[in-house]
Amino acid sequence: MARKAGLFDLRLVIAVLFAIYGVVLLVVGLGFTDEADLTKADGLNINLWSGIGMIALSAVFAAWATLRPVIVPEGGEGTGTA
């Protein structure tokens, strides 16, 4: 009987990490960016844009992991054959 490897799918780990990073940067970019920060990055609100990019990356991995879950075959090939 096959089961889903829901607890430890690397794609979900990536999705969660970049969701955290993305939201933090988005909030910093929207609410806590002063003139000095903008001047440093040549007028770009780089925190805001990077945050949006990371949230998008997170969404892609979450969608991939949801649409194509890992199926672990019971006693599958290659495990414990040492």
């Binding site: 990073y21 940067l25 960016t33 440093k40 990055a41 040549d42 925190n47 990077s50």
Partner: peptide
């Protein structure tokens, strides 16, 4: 150090 503000600097 020249270009990135706090936030992206941490990343």
């Amino acid at each position: 150090g020249e270009l990135l503000p706090n936030g992206m600097l941490g990343i």
